[in-house]
């Protein structure tokens, strides 16, 4: 078995079907050793707030953040995670936005957002994940 591309990936998405599928895809292709999933921005924010200074917790190298979610959407999550941006950077955490939006304003906003590493459009392919996990 080949070594996975990364140790840990964090998926923040409320679409259960998408989460199951992307989990299968990542596992099948050995893209990551561990996957953590949050159904909205609020849950993910709690996790990062609690663990960013926790040396015992291995932080994910990649975050795949959806934009359209209940309770706390992707934009709100980005706003709330901003104060921790430097710490995320120091821990080599790369945040990628994954969305089916075609609204050019949203795409622009995501691509030019300070904390966002990549904007990825759904449908997301095996190749796109491999690329995002390696750069």
């Amino acid at each position: 078995m080949t070594d996975p591309l990364i140790s840990k990936v964090c998926i923040i998405d409320d679409d259960k079907l998408y989460v199951s599928l992307i989990t299968m895809l990542i596992n099948q292709n050995h893209f990551a050793r561990e996957i953590i999933v949050f159904a909205n921005g609020q849950e993910a924010l709690e996790y990062f707030k609690n663990n960013i200074d926790n040396d015992e917790e291995l932080l994910p190298e990649i975050i795949l953040l959806d934009l359209n979610m209940p309770i706390m959407n992707g934009w709100e999550f980005l706003e709330h995670i901003e104060p921790y941006a430097n710490k995320l950077l120091a821990n080599d955490v790369r945040l990628n936005v994954v969305s089916s939006t075609i609204n050019p304003e949203e795409v622009d906003r995501a691509e030019n957002h300070g904390i966002v590493n990549l904007f990825m459009n759904k449908p997301i392919s095996k190749e796109a994940i491999a690329l995002a996990f390696t750069k």
Binding site: L17, L21, S100, T101, K122
Partner: peptide
């Protein structure tokens, strides 16, 4: 509408891929 349709179509593509 486009966003929602794309989500479904994207899941269909992923399902087929797997």
């Amino acid at each position: 509408v486009s966003h929602n349709l794309r989500s479904h179509s994207s899941n269909l593509e992923l399902t087929l891929e797997l």
